[in-house]
């Protein structure tokens, strides 16, 4: 995609603004972002269901943004599966082959193959209304992959499934994509899905791509405070402060040593909840922040301690703790686990 933009209502609504993105052959790319960030519109432009207002879309070296969906050899799975209610599972899967004039014998063969791949051989004669959500999802996947598309587009395909099925389908999808090696673009607002499935993730907000990175890098080096806030559960803690004369002044007498620039500047310091430790005694380190414990939530796997630092809540993930609400504590972290963002929210160090 080369600076692709999409406007609605005569330019009043900007759905996408100057998207630049390259997806490798066989790659699994995830569009991740909150509702209304334009990720679905971006997907629909790739599918050909929307025409870009500006910009160009290429599949390999062929420009496709003027082509109808049918001429792009893309397959799409919709959030609500979009199964044709008057056709049974077999006819649904067969339909794209039928409209493309594939002879009946070959159709039968390919439907059988695909159904086997997705474990829905037994449902072929059923109507969509008679099968479970998971089976509908599989049918809709089967319909998409049966004609071996060059690009596979998925629009929040798991959001209508219950939690257990979602996990199951997640690994199933990943397996399929590995097996078939089809270039895949996947839209979701669920970061866990994005992190677990994507080869790369394009984080979107307000119609633009904020960062494209591999899941680990996205987590380790979020490029803006917005992404830092969006990725992770609970998200990264951000401390606002001013940087001057080699120190970083956070509110309420928390000063951290800081090398580098001398100019006074407002900045944010980001630390992930799991990189913080909490201790009632003053530790022997310059990298501490003081606060008061608000709540302690034992969650089994870890304990979540919410600490009030200068009026804002800071989350700390620790394996165990003996601090109690109301206690004055020190939050300790290693300088290499901290991220510094400038006044515009961009990553500095």
């Amino acid at each position: 995609m080369r600076s692709v933009s999409k406007y609605f209502d005569g330019g009043e609504t900007v759905a996408n603004y100057k998207l630049d993105l390259e997806v490798e052959d066989g790659e699994f790319l995830v569009f991740l972002g909150p509702s209304g960030c334009g990720k679905t519109t971006a997907l629909r432009m790739i599918a050909g269901l929307e025409t870009p207002s500006e910009g160009e879309i290429y599949f390999d070296d062929d420009r496709v943004d003027g082509l109808a969906p049918a001429d792009r050899n893309v397959a799409m799975v919709f959030q609500n599966y979009a199964l044709y209610p008057h056709m049974n599972v077999r006819e649904n899967i067969e339909y794209p082959l039928k409209v493309r004039g594939v002879p009946p014998e070959e159709r039968d063969e390919r439907v059988a193959e695909t159904a086997e791949l997705l474990h829905i051989e037994d449902q072929l004669g059923s109507d969509p209304a008679e099968i479970s959500g998971g089976q509908r999802q599989r049918t809709s996947l089967a319909r998409a992959i049966v004609r071996e598309p060059s690009v596979f587009l998925l629009d929040e395909p798991l959001s209508n499934l219950d939690a257990k099925l979602r996990l199951e389908m997640r690994s199933e999808l990943k397996r399929l994509q590995n097996e078939l090696d089809i270039t895949t673009v996947y839209v979701t607002h669920n970061q866990e899905e994005a992190m677990s499935m994507g080869d790369r993730i394009a984080v979107m907000n307000e119609g633009t791509i904020r960062q494209v990175a591999e899941p680990q890098e996205l987590y380790k080096r979020p490029q803006t405070t917005w992404i830092a806030n969006f990725i992770g559960s609970p998200p990264m803690n951000l401390f606002e402060g001013t940087q001057q004369n080699g120190t970083l002044d956070l509110r309420e007498d928390n000063t951290l040593p800081m090398k580098g620039e001398t100019a006074s500047e407002s900045v944010s310091l980001g630390v992930r909840p799991e990189d913080l430790t909490v201790s009632p005694d003053a530790p022997d380190s310059d990298w501490t922040i003081q606060g008061t414990v608000e709540t302690v939530e034992p969650l089994g796997e870890y304990v979540l301690v919410n600490v009030d630092v200068a009026g804002s809540l800071v989350s700390v993930k620790v394996p165990t703790t003996d601090v109690r609400p109301g206690q004055h504590v020190h939050l300790l972290f290693e300088p290499e686990d901290a991220y510094l963002y400038d006044g515009d929210g961009m990553l500095v160090a």
Binding site: G48, A68, A70, A82, Y84, Y95, V99, R143
Partner: peptide
């Protein structure tokens, strides 16, 4: 989304009418 799905599946305007709209 049914009609969009049919479009992506490669159905022409006429096929979309014959196969999707008319039965429904």
């Amino acid at each position: 989304s049914l009609l969009e799905s049919a479009r992506v599946d490669g159905a022409s305007r006429y096929r979309r009418f014959r196969d999707i709209i008319w039965p429904l």
